Simulated assay, not measured.
Amino acid sequence: MLQSTDLSSAIRPSSLHEEVASRLRALIFERQLAPGQRVDEQALAAEWGISRTPIREALKVLAVEGLVTLQPRRGCVVTEVSEDDAEQLFPVMALLEGRCAYEAAQRATDDELAELRRLHRDLELYARSHDTEGYYRANHVFHTRVQTVAGNPWLSRATDQLRVFMRLLRGRQLRHPGRIDASIAEHRVLIDALSARDAPRAQQLMYEHLMEQLAALKALRASEAQAAADDAKRRAM
């Protein structure tokens, strides 16, 4: 007779590095480990009450995923998405997410469309209060759900791999003045196209939505660079 599994039991040593990897991903995606920051293995080992071995094994997994990068004499650092990276990443992600929207519009059930409309209403609430953090989280859920509704495992595989790097940016473009208002307007026409099962229009709107994110990110970075330059001039006077 099979014995029931005790879900409250301690984690098996063989799976410890998997839990550590999961915790590290969460720290990176929540920016508690910021882009460019060194991962302090010793401090984490002390905090979590484990040896450094599972942390090192977990970092190998994250290095393969691209979340951390091994740098000489610094150890593992959280990967940064540069301006050049963003210029190359967003157009590819726009193509993938556009296809997700296309296939979701074709395949979605009535219940799935109702769920997408509910998720869109969450976005509306966060947009109304200009809650950048809440909007970012809700937006991630919405886009991921569109991908799931598309029901294409090969498309999901490719999209998941790149979404990791999108999450490293953590919706920075939403800080650009007026971006949340523009983003929710883009979502409104997108959800209308999905609800109408207009696959070509949904694809085009999703593509444009991602490219507008890139434009906003570039504008934000330019304004930040200008502000830094102006500050440096004031200090030099």
Rank of each mutant, 00 (worst) to 15 (best):
M1F: 12
M1Y: 12
L2N: 13
L7Q: 12
S9W: 09
S9D: 13
S14R: 15
L16D: 02
L16E: 09
A21Y: 00
S22W: 12
L24P: 00
L24F: 03
L27F: 08
F29C: 05
R31L: 11
Q37F: 03
Q37W: 01
E41C: 13
L44M: 08
A46G: 10
E47I: 05
W48N: 02
W48F: 06
S51Y: 06
I55N: 01
I55F: 03
I55Q: 01
I55T: 03
L59I: 05
L59G: 02
L62N: 02
G66I: 02
G66H: 04
V68R: 00
L70C: 07
P72S: 04
P72E: 06
R74L: 15
R74E: 14
V78P: 00
V78K: 01
D85H: 10
D85K: 04
E87V: 13
V92Y: 12
A94D: 04
L95W: 11
L96H: 04
A101L: 00
Q106V: 09
R107Y: 03
R107I: 02
D111E: 14
L113P: 01
R121F: 10
E124N: 08
L125Q: 15
D131G: 05
D131R: 05
E133V: 13
Y136N: 11
Y136G: 07
A138R: 03
A138Q: 04
H140S: 14
H140K: 14
V141W: 06
F142K: 04
F142M: 10
F142H: 08
T144R: 15
V146D: 03
T148F: 11
N152C: 10
L155F: 05
R157Y: 13
A158M: 14
T159N: 08
T159P: 06
L162C: 06
R163H: 14
V164T: 14
R167W: 09
R167D: 12
R167K: 14
R170Y: 09
G171Y: 02
R172K: 15
Q173G: 11
L174T: 02
L174V: 06
I180W: 05
I180T: 08
D192P: 00
A196K: 06
A196I: 03
A196V: 01
D198N: 11
A199T: 00
P200C: 01
A202Q: 00
E208W: 07
M211E: 11
E212K: 14
L217M: 10
A225M: 07
A225K: 13
Q226A: 15
Q226C: 08
A228G: 05
A229V: 09
D231G: 15
A232I: 08
A232P: 04
